[in-house]
Design a protein around this nucleic acid. Sequence first.
RNA 1: GGGCGAUUAGCUCAGUGGUAGAGCUCCUGCCUUACAAGCAGGCUGUCACUGGUUCAAGUCCAGUAUCGCCCA
Length: 744
Amino acid sequence: MNWCPASQSAVSDVEVENQEVNGHLWHFRYPLTDGSGHLEVATTRPETMLGDTAVAVNPEDDRYKSLIGKTITLPLVGREIPIVADDYVDLEFGTGCVKITPAHDPNDFEMGKRHDLEFINVMNKDGSMNVNAGDFEGLDRFEARKAVVKALEEAGNLVKIEDYAHSVPFSDRGKVPVEPLLSTQWFVKMTPLAEKALKKLDENNDPNLVPERWRKVYRNWLANLRDWCISRQLWWGHQIPAWYAISETGGQITDSTPFVIAKDDEEALAKAKAKFGDDVKLERDPDVLDTWFSSGLWPFSTMGWPEETADLARYYPTSTLVTGFDIIFFWVARMTMMAEHLTGEMPFKDVFIHGLVLDENGKKMSKSKGNGIDPLVLIEKYGTDATRYAMIREVAGAGQDIRLAYDRKTDESQTVESSRNFTNKLWNASRYVMMNLDSKTPAQWGEPGTAVDGNGTNGGSSLPELELVDRWILSRFHRTVKENTENIESYGLGEAAKSLYEFTWNDFCDWYIELSKVRMFADDCPEKTQAQQILATVLEGIHKLLHPFMPHITEELWHGLTQTEAEAAYLATQSYPVVDESRIDLDLETDFQLVIDTIRTVRNMRAEAGIKPGIKVPVVLQTASDREANILNEGKVYIQNLAKAETVTIADADAESPENSVVGVTGTVQVTIPLEGLIDLDELKAKINKNLEKIEKEINGLSGRLGNPGFVNKAPAHVIDGARAALAEAEAQREILQEKLAGI
RNA sequence: GGGCGAUUAGCUCAGUGGUAGAGCUCCUGCCUUACAAGCAGGCUGUCACUGGUUCAAGUCCAGUAUCGCCCA
């Protein structure tokens, strides 16, 4: 088994980490006992030669065939040991001769059993050499290595020393090389447990690993398990429930002392008396269980198992285990095997394997490398919610690692800073909304489009008609609720966080709040009520949606918004928003996009023409489409306010457009800003030409596709229709721009 | 040696067959009565490489390269 000399305990296979080490390969000469020559062996661990009990060669090796059965006299020790033949020996590697130390190497152990060799343990449990090491007794194993090499050199047995990079097993816990030792320990026979877990996995995909690729990792491990050493020579842990009948072996625990397994002292004594008579003397095994053995019981032992408690009935099995991939073997697989064996059920339905947070260089954080990023530093600087939100938002797909931007000198992280800015945005947006709700709560305002209870501004009578912009934000909100639910259910937490960020900032703050100001700041505007209802209801929805991602700030803001005392209720206990499909209207969203695009086009044109932000300009919108004209008419007042227009004129496409003006196009709407004598005609031409070039390229691409029989015959109808519509719009845009260009 | 993942804008990353996106950075202009931790506008791409499948490939297939992780 694997022994950790630092913690002086057995460790299991998964607690052993192989590390590449630049070591040496020492070549020694072992003389034949009959004096007829010698064999040369190579080793990375010279100190173990003191425990050698054979030299092995490959049975097919012509160089050594004749020596098989002869003996070697082991240098320094003088022991006569046989030369054996074993297939394990690689003819190509080193000299083709291998020294065998059955008590200190797992491969040699197997060979020792095959050839019935002597097992000589030359080390103590602390890694020092024991009495079997003769003159080297008491030396630490690494000191003994040097001393043995020196002694062999002085005796003329050292041939050469080569540099040699090889893999060395280190103890996870003790951080020192593991020593393979002979020792009596408790093991769990894994095959029967693993088989049952594999069956559940293969037949029912139980548990369901997310992302799916970890399923194979989990499966392969289960399929190739070796028995699990579970006893630890530590004082912390569950004590092993085995009682030795020491009266049977002279008052000592030996390898042959019989034992009983029991739940407690009383039961142990009863069992022992029945077996060994009333005079039996018991001593409990001082060892404890591997911590992962105990952890493996966690899903049900925390619920009171083995008692049939109410908690166990209610909460077991659980729905989801959230954990990192580095713990699939240590914990997840142990839980599934133990749970299956002891409760007959898998302990959880889903296992969500998330990525790890890497440092600023994309390296895994580790204590030994000292490249950790202290979350408390980030929390101190940016806030708890910002730090938490940043971590979730950076989760890509399911299970990708997160590379965290971080400046070690200033403790600044752009990733977390942008989340902090988002929390700030949420705070300020909430402030704006609360300032404009006339001290009423969302509940008092009621559902958008319904009468306001009590003494609302509409007198509690008529049902206000929702405006285009109101229906737009409600559609966007409910689409966000829907997407968010889908994202969370499929463990797309990063996508969920990002979509809430985009809705809150881009749709609600940048557009709806700005658009609502038209009504909020107008004198005597009867339609103000709907805007207040929408602001109240959508903001509360945002608080709820964001609550799992940033619990503290949303809790605080929600109490302010709803005027709920902390003693009365918490946001944390409110129900999560549920999608109202009837509010979702994709056509309406497309319509409203024209308003947004028109405002953007005007702003763009103003910026390009260098019109000062304070100056209001007349805007002329021309379109041949009735649909577009209707939308523009409905959104006219918004375009006027948000584009800083003096007037907005909506006209037919063939109406005369003013001379000396900047022109832009969106959809098939021609946007014109007349600017008497303020325009650089060359610049204007260049801009239109640039625009035309882009549209020309688009037209070429689209008509190329539509002219291709393969595309028209084989592509699905909606794709072809989409391409035709896009081509028609692009051609209309081209016409508008060409006319304008000709008019300059 | 075996397996898994990644490679897309200066950076961090989305994008599951229908003409490339976000955030940050950068540039320009703004103290507009929620927010300058902000607002408006703008620039930026041989989608690592080579073949193949397809009317159509960042996306599917095969191979190559580089980086990272796991196992032996």
